[in-house]
């Protein structure tokens, strides 16, 4: 059994073998593997007796359920109005500079994927970004650099 298959089986036995478990199962995979691989979706379809297309159709509806490979750390910068007004463009530029990728891309070392997101719910403390599940409000370019460098350091260890 591949590790993905084991993961799917564990998640399904944790949440139950019904369609109602689909979201938690998909979320569980993304938590571990950062995206839903073809293999993962097929295992899920099998376990929950769904068609593979149905699993893909559902997953692709949700912004956080990626179906293309993602880096170990996914950065999502809020791009909605309040963060726009407080300078998300500058934050994105900063990130593009440090990571040497454009929005939508993953770094060569597969360590970071840079994305934007709609309103993250921190409009009073923008600009804001999520790295994986962690939230970083009130960003400035230097603060952003610090944070990302911290992640980079952790990655090399």
């Amino acid at each position: 059994m591949s590790s993905t298959e084991t993961l799917v089986k564990d998640l399904v036995s944790k949440y139950g073998k019904s369609r109602n478990s689909l979201m938690p199962v998909l979320q569980g995979i993304v938590q571990e593997e950062r995206y839903l691989s073809e293999e993962a979706m097929i295992f899920i379809a099998k376990e929950l007796d769904l068609s593979a297309a149905d699993v893909y159709g559902t997953a692709s509806f949700y912004t956080f359920l990626d179906t293309v490979p993602r880096g170990k750390n996914i950065i999502r910068v809020c791009k909605t109005i309040s963060c726009h007004m407080t300078g998300k463009d500058l934050i994105i530029e900063t990130l593009e500079d440090i990571l040497k990728v454009k929005v939508g891309q993953t770094t060569h070392d597969k360590n970071f994927t840079l994305l934007t997101a709609n309103c993250l719910g921190w409009c009073h403390k923008g600009p804001v970004m999520l790295i994986n599940d962690e939230v970083y409000p009130e960003l400035t370019p230097s603060r952003t650099t610090e944070i990302v460098e911290e992640y980079m350091k952790n990655a090399t260890h």
Binding site: M41, S51, A52, A53, D54, Y56, G57, T58, F61, T67
Partner: peptide, 28 residues
Amino acid sequence: AVGALAVINKGDHQRISTFLNKPLSEVV
């Protein structure tokens, strides 16, 4: 009861497709 087709994505990207947008000949 085949489920070869599904609605994928949302918003302006929503459309009708197959598993991972494979050609019809490669799906169920």
